Simulated assay, not measured.
Amino acid sequence: MINIKTATYQWLMLLALTSLSFGLAETDYLGKNILLPVLLATLIKGSIVIDRFMALRHVAGPWRIIVLTWLLAVLGTIWFSFTRI
């Protein structure tokens, strides 16, 4: 069971990372300059959602690995798409 205090801190972390990503996207920097920080923030946010809010942290079997692999595949595809330009 998730402690309410822990869940609140994680929710605040999600808000902070979302604000950071939005702030970076609104700057005058171009794609490759902000790509890595935004993708890293997205990876951290995805991990929090997968572990805590999807409750896959203590799940037996391959479910957590499957979802994390999917997240890494999506982020890798985005990275590849932007770096090939």
Rank of each mutant, 00 (worst) to 15 (best):
I2V: 08
I2W: 03
N3D: 15
N3L: 05
A7L: 10
T8G: 06
T8P: 02
T8R: 07
T8M: 12
Y9E: 09
Q10R: 08
Q10K: 07
L12E: 15
M13A: 15
L14H: 02
L15D: 10
L15C: 11
A16C: 02
A16E: 13
L17Y: 02
T18D: 05
T18Y: 07
S19V: 14
L20C: 10
L20S: 01
S21H: 01
G23R: 00
G23Q: 00
A25M: 08
E26N: 14
T27L: 05
T27H: 05
D28Q: 12
Y29C: 04
Y29M: 05
G31D: 08
G31V: 15
K32Q: 15
K32T: 10
K32E: 14
I34L: 14
V38G: 00
V38C: 03
L39T: 04
L39M: 10
L40E: 04
L40A: 15
L40V: 15
A41W: 01
A41C: 13
G46M: 08
S47Y: 11
S47M: 12
V49M: 14
I50Q: 03
R52Q: 05
F53P: 07
F53L: 12
M54I: 10
A55T: 09
L56V: 14
H58N: 13
H58M: 11
H58R: 11
V59C: 04
V59G: 02
V59Q: 10
A60H: 10
A60G: 09
G61I: 05
P62V: 04
R64Y: 14
V67A: 04
V67L: 12
L68G: 01
W70M: 14
L71Y: 01
L71M: 13
L72D: 06
L72I: 09
L72N: 09
L72G: 07
V74N: 03
V74T: 03
L75S: 13
G76Q: 12
F80V: 14
S81T: 07
F82H: 07
F82D: 05
T83N: 07
R84L: 13
I85P: 03
